[in-house]
Design a protein around this nucleic acid. Structure first.
Lengths: 249, 249
DNA sequence: CGCCGCCTTGACCACCATCAAGTGGAGTGG
DNA sequence: CCACTCCACTTGATGGTGGTCAAGGCGGCG
């Protein structure tokens, strides 16, 4: 199986064989985190960067009411705390949703890699900024769209992101998340998540069985959700600068 | 008057006199953008980085319904499209809310500066990541809190951010924004913004006159909004790495 | 003066939260 | 094998937050 980090980054910008080898070398020493366990805690000052190789995780904050608010889903190939190298202190936590394989990369290794290989540096920054773009889109979605569109939008996004790391085939993917967690993500109650899901199923936009999502008609769902994958910064990215050079397919 | 970019960044991490001079030099050639004019448009591929020196602006996306959704407020010292250097293509627009003084900095200048002055490089990345942290907090706020708390939270944030650039004295600041725009920001209707504002005024949490906000009791408002300024990454930032070196006060 | 943008207020209703009860499968222990 | 528990999901009833529609006030400006 391919390295999810390499798969993700080379969708965004061209990498040489050496770049890829360098990234792959990062992921040598993996450790396993059980499901529902903190990968980083709010307020921590990490010395390493944590990279998810396998499994699902999420960023969250705990509200003073005790409610958990989920701000992002982390998939294989995603960094938990790349920004920690700059900001120092985590302003939120990351928790595994399934058992996860995680790699710890010391900040020094990251810095060295960025110095030695500018293109990899750009790739890491791309990864961080792509996360930010997702946040902006979520903010818009939460503010302006109905709960049903929000949920549809989330499914559209996960379909694309999972495809990038080879975890979605035939528009079918595992979504190992409870309805309660979906509610904490979209800011709606668990009960309402349930009703909305049923409605989406009733309309034939989504099929669900045993935590597996099947999207029979991607175009229809994306239209309903007003989903436009531009914000994921895939198709035609930084490449602009590279077209002047040789395009390494 | 001091340079707002310097004021902002040196609140986050220590800068030498040369660093400051270097930042100040960036802001030599300012141009003025009238109110309600696009500073960057969605989809553009900027070759420069735009920096706000004076005035208010906002990031926004237009929905297919034609509604405008505001995702961020940009104050003096904030960059419009620092991420554009990496991502290439804007996935949202930036529009001025008041007349603005703007500086255009070529990407090459940014790169050179980051190479020559690592600390300034870190400062710029800090600025980008701090924006991301604000997005996360907004996402939580929009998802989990009542409209009244959302609005209160926004005012708390603006008070702190404006203080950083010397635009808030005695907990009083200009907020040159219509109620419609506040609605587009929080994802609530204009009518409801109005009612919520009146309620905040009725409770004595906020005083409003002629687009000027006065917060009589900051502690009370922050408590009501569940505002915790940690996410703005001020107090105790990257410094951690610097304490090993000389602490340039 | 009259128009226009912004704020204000009222009436009505939909979306979604909350409370409550019940179903069904997985795991555990008798 | 069958109780038993636990957890996620499901469904119904009720009510509140906030959307929508509509009308009016008020200041700025041509």
């Amino acid at each position: 199986m391919r390295n999810p980090l390499v798969m993700k980054l080379e969708r965004a910008l061209p990498l040489t064989l050496e770049d890829r080898a360098c990234l792959a070398a990062l992921t040598a020493k993996q450790r396993v985190v059980p499901a529902r366990e903190d990968i980083i805690r709010d307020g921590e000052r990490p010395q390493d960067v944590r990279l998810i190789i396998e499994g699902f995780a999420c960023r969250y904050k705990l509200m003073s009411s005790g409610r958990r608010s989920i701000m992002a889903y982390l998939l294989p190939g995603d960094f938990c705390d790349l920004h920690g190298a700059i900001l120092g202190r985590m302003d939120h936590g990351v928790i595994s949703l399934t058992p996860c394989s995680v790699v710890d990369v010391p900040h020094t290794t990251i810095y060295e890699m960025m110095d030695a290989r500018p293109q990899l540096g750009r790739a890491l920054w791309w990864s961080m900024l792509a996360d930010e773009a997702i946040l902006r889109e979520w903010l818009v979605t939460m503010g302006q769209r109905s709960a049903e569109q929000q949920l549809a939008h989330l499914l559209c996004e996960l379909r694309v992101r999972l495809s990038m790391v080879g975890m979605c085939r035939d528009n079918t993917f595992k979504l190992p998340v409870t309805q309660e967690e979906l509610g904490h993500t979209l800011g709606i109650s668990t009960v309402h998540v349930n009703r909305v899901l049923q409605h989406l199923r009733g309309n034939g936009l989504v099929r669900l069985l045993d935590k597996t999502v099947l999207i029979p008609n991607v175009v229809a769902l994306e239209k309903f959700a007003e989903f436009d994958s531009d914000y994921l910064n895939l198709g035609n990215p930084v490449r602009q600068a590279e077209t002047l050079l040789s395009e390494s397919a």
